[in-house]
Design a protein around this nucleic acid. Structure first.
Lengths: 341, 341
DNA sequence: TTGAAAGCGCTAACAT
DNA sequence: ATGTTAGCGCTTTCAA
């Protein structure tokens, strides 16, 4: 039992493939009568349009390639959820590819997408990526592409991010407002803009409140529970230790909390902690973790919407690059409730 | 600047498209010399095989369609991670589709995949699905399909699951071994085989240890923090309350723990708790949550391997349905450490 | 070992 | 409003 083709339908209703094709895609100059009979025959023969053939002819695959570092990471799963919901509503399929945080895979993913002739590409850059020539190739081929979360502004590629700077600013300001005096920061790898911006937001929030930025209160971590622990041990060994930590990411903050609890330091009475990411666990640990929400689903939706705009506008030479910046959301929970608590 | 085609390469090396095609796919009867010059020209012209054209001609898209309830759920993200890793290694692309736990979307996803002419389909059935006719259609079209985690045996479709029964048995047995006397269970929706099997595993573990199965110690929940809380409140209000709960899923277990803590009941000294799923948060809450790991990545890998086998064997009428059952892994943490602790 | 030719199923330019 | 024709880029007989 073979798949029905438009030719089969054409025979069934005594017309030609071209008319059937037009009827099925709701061409305005096809009579209602023909459309009806074609649709009826399509249903009868259980016809499904062959997207492969359609793509070959039309040059549009209605496929979006998405590269994420890992589907295992909740953050990206959530963004993909947002992407998918919009894609689906617009008749696009999502081709998923994981870079495993490695540039080599990232490049392979892009080549796959080129080969699959996707209509557009969404990428969150791998940690490992420091050379960006593979993206330049995409641009030179004029494939619509949008970065999300992990971006590289210098490439002049459209992007959707949350305002890491502002989120960090808010988090730090919040710790100050809750009465913490010496606020430290555990950063992430600073070659990634997200973490760099968070560091700047932290510094500027201190300055804005007339506090000195103390370089000894900045510990360079690598976004892990262990680096949260290490940073905390480091800070606690100082002559004049801090009384609060803004961690660049929730897992780091988790390490901070674990270490503080082991040392018998009470949170938030003696020590304040805030993270960044709004990971699921933050709500359920003790004390619950204050953090900054990254609007993941919205990020996915915005990124795909932006991409679809670019796809639609192609040809039109509106070469203005867009950067969508989403507002982070401060989430105050127990871990930063203040010294009076 | 247009994409290079095999015809361009053919011109470059003074041969025909057919030879180029064969050279690029490493056809055995093409001379090494030709292969080398063709490959050189391909690199020079920055040629990428057009998968769309290739698919149309060959009938193989090298695309796998994957339907999951939601990419936001960690479990499925993790399985997708496993699927992707194998797909990638075998030159397959992964088309992702979310059912949002709804049958209507699930059906739409299948139709999309049919239309995209994917070589095979992987599905984890939506909670909402109670009528399975859409899957029967896939089977009648002889598209290779494999279920994972959420399966329906009656359809005679290959599947990969973990042994929910055994996991539940192990969890219950573990609570008994740790000295808990009256062990209750909070179940999930029993029309889903997973939860039904876990209930059976719970019952049989009790029987195996010569304990009576007490129907009043089984609370029918719906896999949520709130249902964990409700179940716990229910049990605690009994004249003769239990001293341990095996929750059918980690979020339910989390609700149990939250409720117990609020009531001032000490875990694990007074009350034991174990969940199922090995969600990320379990390791980080207080007390840490004992649970059963579901081998998510392995599940994804096995499901895709099974699917690839079926794809390769098509035509061969080896119509024996396979059911891969993975071993669950008991993870003992604080919440079930025993009454003596 | 290579070439010639056909065609996968669809869409679009051109014609009527 | 519909038919005719060509062709997207590739793979695959068949022939040499």
């Amino acid at each position: 039992m073979l798949r029905a083709t438009i030719t089969d339908i054409a025979k069934e209703v005594n017309t030609t493939a071209a008319t059937v094709s037009r009827a099925l895609s709701n061409h305005p100059r096809i009579s209602e009568k023909t459309k009806r009979s074609v649709h009826a025959a399509a249903v009868k023969l259980n016809y499904k349009r062959d997207r492969v053939a359609s793509s070959l002819r039309s040059g549009k695959t209605h496929l979006i390639g998405v590269i994420i570092p890992s589907a295992e990471i909740n953050f990206f799963g959530s963004v993909v959820h947002g992407i998918e919901s919009i894609a689906n509503a617009h008749g696009y399929g999502v081709l998923l590819f994981q870079s495993n945080e490695q540039r080599a895979y990232e490049e392979k993913g892009l080549e796959n997408f080129l080969s699959a002739r996707v209509d557009g590409i969404l990428v969150s850059i791998a940690k490992d990526t420091k050379d960006y020539s593979h993206f330049k190739q995409i641009r030179s081929r004029r494939i619509p592409i949008v970065f999300f979360d992990r971006v590289k502004d210098e490439l002049g590629i459209d992007s959707v991010v949350i305002d890491d700077y502002r989120g960090a600013f808010m988090a730090t300001e919040h710790l100050i407002a809750r009465g913490y005096k010496r606020i430290a920061h555990i950063s992430g790898p600073l070659h990634l803009k997200n973490f760099y911006d968070r560091l700047q937001g932290y510094k500027d929030a201190l300055k804005a409140k007339k506090r000195k930025v103390d370089q000894t209160l900045i510990y360079n971590g690598n976004v892990s529970i262990e680096s949260g622990r290490e940073g905390t041990r480091h800070f606690l060994s100082m002559r004049n230790p801090p009384d609060a930590i803004f961690a660049t990411e929730d897992f780091t903050a988790l390490g901070v909390i674990k270490e503080l609890k082991e040392k018998g330091i009470r949170i938030p009475r003696q020590f304040g902690v805030i993270g960044f990411a709004n990971e699921l666990f933050g709500e359920h640990i003790t004390p619950t973790l204050s953090t900054v929400d990254q609007q993941t689903i919205q990020m996915g939706k915005s990124a795909l919407k932006l991409l679809l705009n670019i796809i639609d506008k192609r040809g039109t030479n509106h070469e203005t690059k867009q950067k969508v910046v989403l507002d982070p959301l401060l989430i105050c929970r127990e871990s930063s409730a203040g010294k009076s608590k």
